[in-house]
């Protein structure tokens, strides 16, 4: 057993983890934050994407003990109590969610992109979500949604 301390969605945790547990296992099986999905388990699909210390990572490729001292945001940390995040709203408005399996990862990749680049081009959006696969939407609606979210976030800031 390893004892680690980390922050997830602004909450501090101090917790024991087994040696062979990955970050995704810790999130899903120990903390029941099941919004993070496991698809391929090999870094290819991005369903397990979380934001770790300001950057998106595949939680299936991080060992839990490596997250010691880290600051992590999962999809559960996106909305503000009952209010959806503008990115989440835009995904719904633009019909960018079908089966939804890729959505948590997509939304976090979008957040990480918009945090660094308020007004990305469609090309930059595609690049930003290039590590997230979607079998359903054909991506265009996802790009539309992120474009819309970027506009709404900029407008919100102006107000």
């Amino acid at each position: 057993m390893n004892h680690i301390s980390l922050t997830i969605n602004k909450k501090m945790y101090s917790i024991d983890v087994e040696e062979d547990v990955r970050l995704i296992d810790l999130l899903r099986d120990q903390l029941f934050l099941t919004g993070t999905k496991e698809g391929c388990g090999e870094g290819e699909c991005g369903a397990c994407t979380v934001i770790m210390d300001g950057r998106v990572v595949n939680s299936c490729l991080v060992m839990a003990f490596q997250a010691e001292g880290s600051n992590i945001t999962t999809i559960e940390g996106m909305s503000d109590k009952d209010e959806l995040h503008p990115i989440q709203k835009a995904f719904l408005d633009k019909g960018a969610v079908q089966c939804g399996f890729c959505t948590p990862g997509m939304v976090l990749s979008a957040k990480s992109l918009l945090d660094k680049n308020e007004n990305p081009t469609r090309e930059e959006i595609r690049e930003g979500i290039s590590g997230n696969l979607c079998r359903c939407t054909g991506y265009n609606k996802i790009v539309d949604a992120i474009e819309l979210a970027s506009k709404e976030i900029r407008e919100e800031k102006k107000e």
């Binding site: 870094g43 991005g46 994407t49 950057r55 998106v56 990572v57 595949n58 490729l61 991080v62 990749s109 990480s112 690049e127 930003g128 290039s130 590590g131 997230n132």
Partner: peptide, 9 residues
């Protein structure tokens, strides 16, 4: 290399 996630790690 890989994807943004892979390049970040």
């Amino acid at each position: 290399v890989g994807s943004p996630q892979i390049r970040n790690m």
